[in-house]
Design a protein around this nucleic acid. Structure first.
Length: 266
DNA sequence: ATGTCCAGTATCACTGGA
């Protein structure tokens, strides 16, 4: 099965891109971030026509996340229990496969704007609650996937200019430590499980010819629980939609799992 | 530090993104 994560930067504007992309990339699951629309405006019918059920968690103007899935899903959860948040950033679902289940957490991490700002404090607080939430998911579910727009570069190799941007937003030590703590819970950065080209990024600034010059960041991830490592066969970033007219500034990140490789006897 | 590019609001200038 194939899972993908994509920050579409307004589903209103990008719906046709998503439909076109799903047509040539008929993934089993797509986690979407930055819907920028309310639930009443979520294009349920368009996804149904494409063969996907959906669970959405929107809000006016900003944020918003959704899961489009071909398999049956249950136990939909919105945001982080125990952490009241007016911003719609997390949606989770349990996906039923033939013989097993995957708990999927799709998240739009806080941007944080600038270290030291109020928004940065919110980012760190949100990250702490997410860590607790993922730990709970791992305790309750055999297989867990955490995907989304993390708004953090995991290391210098995930930035086009790690020296010039040292300790700026997405590059600070404290953000990276938060991401490392997520991994330390027993999650794997699926992209780095394979050899990848240097300067592989998932986001490029609209300005200053960012994409043409490949001045980007890798800030979109699909983390899988260690339990799924035997099933991991491929992980990649699809840069193609970033070349389309009026693109999202993010590219989809994909993971391929061969669930048949999991030893169900253990 | 600043400019620059994009989306949304009910605009004609602002916030927020990253």
């Amino acid at each position: 099965m194939t899972l993908a994560s994509w920050n579409v930067n307004s589903l209103n504007v990008r719906l046709q891109h998503v439909r076109n992309w799903l047509e040539s990339n008929p993934v089993d699951v797509l986690g979407i971030q930055e819907l920028k629309l309310i639930d009443e405006k979520f294009p349920t019918a368009a996804f149904a026509e494409a063969g996907y059920q959906t669970a959405a968690f929107g809000q006016p103007t900003y944020n918003g996340v959704a899961i489009a899935h071909r398999h049956e899903a249950q136990d939909i959860e919105r945001n982080i229990p125990g952490y009241p948040d007016s911003q719609s950033r997390v949606i989770s679902a349990t996906l039923n496969m033939a013989s097993t289940q995957i708990r999927l957490v799709n998240a739009y991490f806080v941007n944080g704007q600038e270290p030291g700002s109020e928004k940065f404090a919110y980012k760190l607080e949100w990250l702490a609650h997410l860590e607790r939430y993922v730990a709970e998911q791992l305790a309750q579910h055999q297989h867990v996937v955490l995907m989304g727009d993390f708004n953090i570069t995991a290391s210098d190799q995930d930035s086009w200019d790690p020296n010039g941007l040292k300790e700026t937003i997405h590059h600070t030590t404290i953000e990276r430590q938060a991401l490392l703590r997520l991994l330390a819970l027993g999650m794997l950065d699926s992209f780095r499980a394979f050899e990848q080209a240097e300067k592989s990024f998932s986001w490029w600034d609209y300005r200053m010819l960012g994409f043409q010059k490949n001045r980007g960041l890798r800030i979109d991830y699909v983390l899988i629980s260690e339990s799924l490592r035997p099933a991991l066969t491929r992980s990649w970033i699809d840069r193609a939609p970033r070349k389309w007219p009026k693109p999202s500034d993010h590219a989809p990140v994909l993971v391929e799992l061969d669930m048949a490789r999991l030893d169900s006897s253990t």
